Simulated assay, not measured.
Amino acid sequence: MSRPIHWGLLSAGNIVGQFARDFAVVENAVIHAVAARNGDIASAFAREHGIAKAYEGYEGLLTDPDIDVIYIGTPHNLHFEHAKAALEHGKAVLCEKPMTVTPKECEELQRVAERTGGYLMEAMWTYFLPPVQTALRWVQEGRIGRICQIKADFGYPQLPFDSKKRVYDAKLAGGCLLEMGVYPVALAWLFMKQDPTEVQVVSRHAPNGVEDDLAVLFNYADAVATLGTSFRCKLQNWAYIIGEEGYIAIPDFWRAREASLYVLDDRVDHFVDERATDGFHYEAQAVTNDLLAGRAGSSVVAARDSLAIQRQMAMIREAFCDDV
Rank of each mutant, 00 (worst) to 15 (best):
H270F: 12
F271M: 07
H82T: 07
A152F: 03
P130D: 09
L214G: 06
E27K: 15
E211F: 03
K104Q: 13
Y71K: 13
R21C: 10
M121V: 14
V210P: 01
E107M: 05
F191K: 04
A33W: 14
G17Y: 06
K91V: 01
P184G: 10
L129P: 06
Q110H: 15
H82S: 04
R317G: 02
K171W: 00
T126N: 07
A186V: 00
I31P: 14
Q312R: 10
K171V: 11
E59K: 13
A239V: 04
A188D: 02
E108D: 11
K171L: 10
V16C: 12
A314Y: 00
Y71V: 13
D323Q: 14
V272A: 11
A286N: 12
F161I: 05
M315I: 02
M1G: 09
L109K: 11
K171F: 05
N14C: 08
A239C: 07
Q200N: 07
V185K: 01
H281T: 03
D153V: 01
Q236S: 15
E59M: 06
L217P: 01
V30S: 02
G294E: 11
G145A: 04
L187E: 02
T288L: 08
N237I: 00
G181S: 01
E59Q: 14
I5L: 15
N219S: 11
L235N: 06
C321V: 11
A113V: 03
K84C: 10
R275D: 02
A284K: 05
I242P: 01
Q18V: 08
I250R: 13
D266R: 15
E27N: 09
A113T: 09
A135M: 06
N77M: 14
A20D: 08
F128W: 14
D278G: 01
M192V: 03
F154N: 14
A42G: 13
A256H: 14
H6I: 02
C95F: 07
P251L: 08
K151L: 08
T277L: 07
G294N: 02
A296E: 10
L227P: 01
F23E: 03
A188Y: 09
A170Y: 00
E122M: 15
V324K: 03
I70S: 13
